[in-house]
Write a protein that binds this DNA or RNA. Sequence first.
DNA 1: ATCATGCTTAGCCATATCGCTAACTATTCA
DNA 2: TGAATAGTTAGCGATATGGCTAAGCATGAT
Lengths: 113, 113
Amino acid sequence: MAKHDPDLSLLFHALADPTRRSILTRLAETPARVTDLAGPTGLRLPTVMRHLSVLEQAGLITTSKDGRIRTCAIVPQALDPVRTWLDEQRAIWDARLDRLDAFVMNVMKESKE
Amino acid sequence: MAKHDPDLSLLFHALADPTRRSILTRLAETPARVTDLAGPTGLRLPTVMRHLSVLEQAGLITTSKDGRIRTCAIVPQALDPVRTWLDEQRAIWDARLDRLDAFVMNVMKESKE
DNA sequence: ATCATGCTTAGCCATATCGCTAACTATTCA
DNA sequence: TGAATAGTTAGCGATATGGCTAAGCATGAT
């Protein structure tokens, strides 16, 4: 069985949370402070901090601190591995579509029990 | 903040595990029985079963039982929402790239402390 | 009828996740 | 200097995750 990129696990896991996806969407608009990000979520600061740290460890955002203010911004190319994996899978999956179609037909026939 | 598709959470979460991605890759080759999938992973059957159930709930695979044998197959279009989300994000992220570039320059300057 | 095969269920254990509060540090403003 | 602001750290509790074993239940072969 194929070896699989650990980075992909981090990325997918980071993207699996709705709050984190909101944060990303918000950051796509413009960089923002931690407090700015906490506001719309209705979550407490430490909670948001943790989400940010997950996003940062996955490489999806960068943060930098100026005085007491930490500013967060997306890292656009961070989604590239995900896109690549998706493209690879689509290529393989589509290549087998004919075989799969036959199988699905079989399944549908069988599941009429 | 935008509302986010719960299906995406299921999909991303299902994809976040290397074992599950291996299973998907294996299934892309050809449909397989549960035992066939368990073999290469080195995991026990109940463990594999759980992974399969996660994949099935995310809509990534279908399974059907013929006699005592359960056969699993990928659902090719299941990745579509992921791809759509990725495309949307890229559109937004790229649209802000100019602004972001300016910000990143700023960050790099600041982080030279 | 019996036995092996293939899957399924129940349940245990260790760890991770996601939310919180409380308390702390560090900056900025008055 | 003192107080407000922005973030951080520590740690709690409930739940989810990912692995396992043991035992159960069908089905297929002898």
